[in-house]
Design a binder for these strands. Structure first.
Lengths: 112, 112
DNA sequence: TATCGTTATGTTTTTCAAAATATAGCGATA
DNA sequence: TATCGCTATATTTTGAAAAACATAACGATA
């Protein structure tokens, strides 16, 4: 069967976008690099865009998702909270389940 | 639970985009109006964009999805083939199933 | 054979989002 | 107290997508 099904999912909280695929990969990059600027660079995002994303995430989330520090050793940095890590994990679970579900749904296109 | 989950799905055939939500609503509008230009107007699309969409759909599909006629009674028109109608129906089924599935998946966000 | 409302397409203009650039402020530490 | 690399934010520039505009072609039919 040469059909493919693709999807994009995102989660809103109080009608504000909380998480989507782009936001998730930014959070993962922060976890790996320990800094927002390095994270942005690593996934080819301008620092500014990355900053707005994190700002938007932290405003939509019930609890802080990152802790950002300005100045100090190394100039500062950014790291995920445990809460942030649990959000990533919940999103990844849903996304993966969704892919599997949709692949099954392609039977609706058999013979078409 | 004040979380909402949203999705966008689309179907590709031979790595070309065949159907997505925008394309589906254009096809439905053609079914209702009998003409591409009227359909475009009814869903606030420029004729040109609508034409490119239909062109792209018909190039990606195994069989023609619309029959377009130029000139003649009323200047011409556009109508769905039976094949086109069956594609719409298959897409709608998958999309609806997906929404239900994702709503269930929100349990992953309980307590978060 | 002139008319009409379409499809089909090219060209130009506008708009908006993204990227680039600039710069202020911060705090550990040497 | 000077330095450093980072966060935070404003301003300008660029580019790509969308909209707007223009026009050719078509075929039933009056």
């Amino acid at each position: 069967m040469s059909y493919k099904i693709k999807s994009r999912i995102w989660i809103e909280h109080d009608d504000k976008v909380l998480l989507g695929e782009g936001r998730i990969s930014l959070l993962k990059a922060i976890e790996e690099t320990g800094s927002l600027s390095k994270a942005a660079k690593s996934i080819n995002l301008s620092y500014k865009k990355a900053w707005h994303l994190i700002d938007s995430i932290n405003k939509a989330a019930k609890n802080p998702v990152t802790i950002n520090s300005i100045g100090g050793k190394g100039g500062g940095g950014s790291e995920l909270t445990d809460y942030g890590k649990s959000l990533i994990s919940a999103f990844d679970t849903i996304n993966k389940n969704c892919w599997e579900f949709l692949d099954d749904q392609l039977v609706n296109f058999q013979d078409l």
